[in-house]
Write a protein that binds this DNA or RNA. Structure first.
Lengths: 118, 118
DNA sequence: TTCAAATATTCCTTATTGGGTATATTATAT
DNA sequence: ATATAATATACCCAATAAGGAATATTTGAA
């Protein structure tokens, strides 16, 4: 997984931009307007998104049309897939018990198998 | 989408920790070892992951067993779902053309509908 | 009580990041 | 050539984050 994807999304304005661009391409000015940003900061954040590969630009005269790229989202989804097991509460109580037992084996000092009561 | 999830993952050591914990719970020392970190930085990064809700701890004597929580991964997956359209290259050439046409309508200064040739 | 292991916290220092403002750049129109 | 709109870049400053090293805390054992 590319860490730049996460750092690009780890900023409110930039995450907002991505959500905004879900509706389709927008210019810098439109993005700045909708998010209440000044133009320079909008440009700077878009640059970060661009370098992270999250968006791409198309120059149309004066304007720059920014839109989402699909690749990083696909990558994110496939990375997430590796965590599907966790969905199903793989580490449920039984597993935790087994893991604890296994951890005990590292220091079988006092009682061997059955800890006597009191 | 909670931004803390992204900022927590936007750091190589922490992303490494998450990947590592995919295999099951580990103690601070084990994590530090496997990632070549000093213990204090391991603890500090784990704290960030903890506060982001990505992991949880279980104290067992001296040790702290850290393991992944499922919720943030579910949240991430459901957030990603909103971007599924982009998978299918929704913004293909036709869409881009239509969007460009719509953008033109904002400044219909010269030609109204049919721009005359030459 | 004293010791040692595992972990957390604190302090310090440096690097990075984000906002603000001014300015440069590019394209269109006159 | 000049003016204007849209955008990018540069510079400065404050806030944040990360590593290093020392220290505090907790637990089990002698």
């Amino acid at each position: 997984m590319n860490i730049m994807t996460f750092s690009a999304l780890a900023e409110p304005s930039r995450l907002g931009m991505v959500e905004l661009l879900r509706g389709g391409p927008l210019t810098v000015g439109e993005i700045a307007d909708q998010l209440g940003l000044r133009q320079p900061q909008a440009s700077k954040h878009l640059r970060v998104l661009l370098e992270a590969g999250l968006v791409e630009v198309e120059a149309v005269a004066n304007r720059r049309n920014y839109r989402l790229r699909s690749e990083p989202f696909r990558a994110l989804a496939s990375w997430l897939d590796a965590y599907r097991n966790i969905w199903n509460e793989r580490f449920d109580n039984l597993d935790i018990y087994l893991q604890k037992m296994q951890a005990e084996e590292n220091k079988p000092q006092a009682g061997e198998n059955e800890p006597k009561e009191t």
